[in-house]
Design a protein around this nucleic acid. Structure first.
Lengths: 155, 155
DNA sequence: TTAAAAGTTGGAGTCGACTCCAAGTCAAGC
DNA sequence: GCTTGACTTGGAGTCGACTCCAACTTTTAA
């Protein structure tokens, strides 16, 4: 069964939003496995690969350094993560980081909202309580309400 | 009233978690205004400045490039943002970006959760539904910038 | 047959954001 | 008086993540 649909690097770039150069670069630093080649040496990509590249792109949007993405790839090949306890630890710690990052972001959104609502107030976002500053708590739970914040965005 | 308590650059670095070098660098590129000096030329910082630096640090945590932080500083000196309509537009657009970024992050969290919950499934974060996948919704609007091959920011 | 299009490679260049360094000043303590 | 420590400056170096380039092959289209 060779009928799985295949993509050129250009198509892959178009479909994932990651440039050809960047895809080759990821392969060069072994963030992506060496792509399958045609007889002429051209790279061939499958759906599976596109998904992996989209995952990288997604992680990148979160500001994650490339080196930190490797564990995600390890888990994204079809292995049961439960087989790799230290990988699980890694992922859990990343999850922590990301939740913190969401908190930072949420505070920036709050900052902007406050600024937009009325001038004058000067709130920040380091989570550390200073004097009377009674900033909105932003509990990790409620954090998910972010979706509600932009009821009908569409830039 | 000159009694406002003042900090050295070292104290400021300690209190904000931003290194001395970085603070000087921010001043050099005029991301921070030139700090007040003592007679001996040493920089002096006040609470106000620490707050500004913490704001930068917070924005940095969100992965924002330094250049994009300038509008935030413009608004963070005690001016009413309503006086600067284009600044308001800027902030609103940043708010959009951040909300999108939160969506990306949320999807990574979902990805991790799914992976941790059960191995085997290969979910990603591009909003495309695959067979029985009943992952947490993450409304389509916010992830529009995934599929859309959006090239944010650069050249 | 020739030319254009799409790919390959290794390597060089760029850019943002630091980070480090050398040379110098100044204030305090031994 | 001399050393130590905290600071100043301008500039050089580093690092991650691309991005671009030149030289080359192969396929397609005129």
């Amino acid at each position: 069964m060779k009928t799985e649909l295949a993509y050129t690097i250009k198509q892959t770039a178009d479909q994932t939003g990651v440039s050809e150069d960047t895809i080759r670069y990821y392969e060069k630093i072994a963030l992506l496995p060496r792509a399958e080649r045609r007889d002429n040496g051209h790279r061939v990509y499958r759906e599976e690969d596109l998904r992996t590249i989209r995952l990288l792109s997604c992680l990148k949007k979160t500001g994650m350094p490339l080196e930190e993405m490797r564990p995600f790839l390890a888990v994204s090949v079809d292995a049961d993560p439960a087989d790799y306890p230290e990988l699980v630890a890694h992922l859990k710690s990343h999850r922590e980081n990301i939740v913190n990052q969401i908190a930072s972001l949420q505070q920036v959104v709050d900052f902007i909202d406050i600024k937009l609502a009325q001038g004058r107030y000067r709130g920040e976002c380091d989570g550390e309580e200073r004097e009377g500053t009674k900033k909105k708590p932003v509990s990790p739970m409620e954090m998910s309400h972010f979706s509600a914040a932009s009821k009908q965005g569409k830039s």
